[in-house]
Design a protein around this nucleic acid. Structure first.
Lengths: 345, 345
DNA sequence: TCATAAATTGTGCTCGAACACAGTTATGCG
DNA sequence: CGCATAACTGTGTTCGAGCACAATTTATGA
């Protein structure tokens, strides 16, 4: 109940607070028997240091570096800054300085260049989106050897990579399939990968696997699950051809945020019977969601991802809390009626 | 950039820190011209007090009172304590003591009795679920006259009631309708109110209105939207009769957490063609969601409601942040594939 | 044995805000 | 003018942890 201070403990142990301090921080210069006694005492009363006092004394300026995709190049990343702002405002009692470095999500060179800039800013800790597998792996190793803690989000480089915030992509593929199946239960299904300028191959494959696994687990589905890979530059023509080739198509699952491309075509060709499920609340997607061309969107919540990542980092710096190795966000299902509160405030 | 301290300001103004302090806290005993000068200075440099130092000095024990429904009487409330624990752990640096008083959600007398106990515990601030309209209104007024800040969640007493966290119930009715409409587009719909032992009439009516409004906005829906009120004690018989009377029924919307009652009947009577949408992730509901009898559940997220309410209160106490007058949570759509991360950890 | 080094322990100041109290200047009034 | 009182201003301590340095005790060696 009562909160013990170092002074209390000093009195209980019959030594001075300096000695208690030395024991707590293992700074040596303490007689063996005294050290043991104090350590036992600390255990017994479950001593918790007053973090308020500690922070006042330390009175540090925490430098946080961020390596994020430029939202000007891909609107998906726009909301990240909201999440970052929220985390900063929650911890405004502490002196936390952010240095944000934006890289071009279509350009690995920009990534490494910005990374170098980030390193020069001497951050205590780093928040980043490891968009490019090879480059990010390098960068992460570099941080590790420099003993700088990193928190990543959105893209998981490897299953083992620590401190990751994101979604279970396989499961989100299953969610998409379940949604699709609940709104249409016959006809062929198509999984469409619209290539982004940057490779998100792992992302899309996981979603595809999840989607397929749902239908495989099902009994009594005997139509086809088709697959279609389209280059970003030739989207419209290829799509049109694909639709022509598969007249029995009733559902399309787009594995990234580009569902609006498909929606545009479905609308112009009046193929209202084809159901469409995609990802992410980009303005264009939301418009097609509202007018009914897109049926469901899965929300990956980059805002919350950035918010949580930064929050974990700050709590690590300020309160020495552990950063959870892997934090999976729930998979939000969005339709035209519940979309509003998920959009930017 | 630089953070100014009271000492800095004292130096800048050519007075002592005592005077700065008096100006900041309007404690008087300051010459008019000096006061003006210091106030202008504070404005100019946008002085923000160091909240860490303030809290260390004040060194207060904050007493928070909670007036919540007993989860033993209704499992819906079980997850609230998780949310409360999370908020407490986030603010473990401060000395925050919770006194929780549980009332029987079927008994208004228990509510007022626990409220009296709560008052005796001399709380600085209060978190509560104002389950009963009349009684809660009284209680809220009492707190107001005692100048104790309150944060309510789950039930909004009146549109004007300040400091409320919950969902837009009308909109959640619309979400249910949209879901229903996307999985079945012909046949009659039924809105079923299963009376709880405590009256949640306003809740259920709002959801009903929202549900209906969706179908009214629709063109080309010409089947019926039926309505059925059932007393908790006679659920099964009444339901069976209702189903017999309406053979054209294809969708049922249950306006509270009791969808499992309907699911049980649908399963035993093998009426798999009737779609079912309900509320809340009770274990029984989730089981029916997983085996496909319930198609969608809407998650009201009591855990997050309690978490946010407590967080707002603590930030008010500790950092003097304003409590947002009304905070609406997003309406989560749950199916069998995305349910897992929403359940208790 | 005693000077000196080494090991151990204690003291006191700091961080920034809050507040009590001491100290200083101004004002009023006989 | 003098003195009391009011009006105002400055100083010093506190909160708890952290750390530098002073003080003390113990060990070592000639």
């Amino acid at each position: 109940m009562k909160k013990y201070t170092i002074k209390d403990i000093a009195q209980l142990a019959g030594v001075s607070k300096g000695t208690i301090d030395r024991v707590i921080h293992n700074r040596g210069n303490v007689a063996k028997d005294v050290e043991d006694k104090v350590k036992r005492l600390l255990e017994d009363i479950d001593y918790q240091p007053n973090l308020i006092a500690r922070n006042l004394k330390n009175n540090r300026i925490y430098q946080i570096g961020a390596l994020l995709p430029d939202p000007k190049k891909d609107a998906y990343w726009e909301v990240c800054s909201d999440g970052i702002q929220q985390a900063l405002s929650e911890f405004s009692a502490f002196d936390i300085r952010m240095n944000t470095f934006l890289f071009d999500p279509t350009d690995t060179k920009s990534f490494t260049a910005q990374h170098k800039q980030l390193l020069d800013s001497a951050p205590d800790i780093i928040l980043m989106v490891p968009l490019f597998y090879k480059e990010a792996k390098n960068v992460l190793e570099q941080y590790k050897s420099l003993n700088i803690q990193v928190c990543t989000f959105n893209n998981q480089i490897e299953a083992s990579t620590a401190n990751f915030i994101g979604q279970d992509l396989y499961q989100s593929g299953r969610v998409a399939a379940k949604l699709m199946h609940s709104i249409i239960d016959k006809g062929d299904m198509a999984i469409i990968h619209i290539d982004e300028k940057y490779k998100n191959a792992v992302h899309m494959q996981e979603k595809e696997k999840g989607f397929k696994s749902y239908y495989e687990d099902l009994n009594g589905f005997h139509d086809d699950i088709l697959k279609c890979k389209i280059k970003y530059t030739e989207t419209e023509d290829k799509l049109r051809d694909f639709l022509k080739d598969h007249p029995n198509l009733t559902g399309i699952f787009v594995t990234n945020s580009k569902a609006f491309h498909v929606a545009r075509l479905l609308e112009s060709e009046n193929k209202n019977h084809i159901k469409l499920v995609g990802y992410d609340l980009l303005e264009e997607n939301v418009n097609f969601l509202k007018n009914g061309v897109i049926d469901f969107l899965i929300h990956q919540n980059p805002r919350q991802q950035a918010y949580l990542g930064l929050k974990f980092l700050i709590e690590y710096l300020v309160f020495e809390k552990e950063i959870p190795g892997k934090h999976l966000l729930p998979i939000d299902i969005i339709n035209s009626e519940n979309v509003k509160p998920f959009l930017r405030p």
